[in-house]
Simulated scan of single mutants.
Amino acid sequence: MTPAAVGFQCPDDVRAGNAGVRRARPVPRWTAARRRFGPVTATLVAVNVAVFVVTAVSAVSVGEGPLENWRSPVFQEFSQVPVLVDVFGQDWRLITGAFLHIGITHLLLNMLSLLVFGPELEARLGWWRYLGVYLVSALGGSVAIQLFGEPGRPVAGASAALYGLLGALGVLMLAARQDLRGLLTLLAINVVISFLPGVSLLGHLGGLVAGVLATALLVLTRRALQRRRAVVQGAGLLLLAAVLVTVALVVPVPVVVLGL
């Protein structure tokens, strides 16, 4: 017999009882992260970190330090350089630059911001609308840099997309008649920071405007017929992205930059 809290228990009965109890299985860390932060937010963070590791390894392959990842061939091939997009037709740089970061600090700050603001927006918008706003915002920043930035200066980072998420949050709060003062104060502080050397003010503002437009489109079409709402909203986001890409590719860089 086995001593118990009250009296004694038969060992066979204890084993039989334990056999019918379901034991909790440990949840993998990736699954836990997806549940906590949202699948899209967690995936975006993972992709950005993975890309940074790739650029760090690429930097080592050419004799540079891993933290000097901007010197790597991969970074040079995929960062946004307006003149290379306009003159040499390297269109992929409009979006790939949004997944590159210049150094570990740049990466950590942007990913922390994404983990702070991303989950709430993903919960409010749903995964595909949230992803659409993120990518459209990234394109908005790229278009602003393409039109008004320095033609030969490489630009990279998820900041434009993050500003777009802040703009998206502002639109949702406005539609819900929530107090915007805290968000506007945060935006004002970040815009001031954008004037610091090495920070792309154009990319930030372009992402902010694109995020506002994309989310306003979603809000204005949310009363569409239930069966058609997703189609209308998806088509609207695709159309907005197409317009941004077209503007970036059609308007010549030298004409805009030189004001001719």
Rank of each mutant, 00 (worst) to 15 (best):
Q226T: 10
Q226F: 08
Q226S: 14
Q226A: 15
Q226E: 14
R227C: 00
R227M: 04
R228A: 14
R228D: 13
A230K: 08
A230Y: 03
A230S: 12
A230N: 09
V231K: 04
V231I: 13
V232A: 12
V232L: 15
V232I: 15
V232D: 02
Q233F: 06
G234V: 02
G234K: 02
A235H: 00
G236W: 04
G236H: 02
L238H: 01
L239N: 00
L240G: 01
L240V: 04
L240N: 03
A241R: 05
A242Q: 07
A242T: 10
A242L: 13
V243D: 06
V243Q: 06
V243L: 15
V243E: 05
V243S: 02
L244H: 01
L244V: 01
L244K: 02
V245P: 01
T246E: 09
T246N: 06
T246M: 11
T246A: 15
V247Q: 08
V247S: 06
V247M: 11
V247A: 13
V247P: 04
A248D: 10
L249M: 15
L249E: 11
V250C: 02
V250Q: 13
V250S: 10
V251T: 13
V251S: 05
P252Y: 10
P252R: 11
P252F: 11
V253K: 13
V253I: 06
V253M: 07
P254M: 11
P254R: 13
V255A: 13
V256H: 06
V256A: 15
V257A: 12
V257M: 03
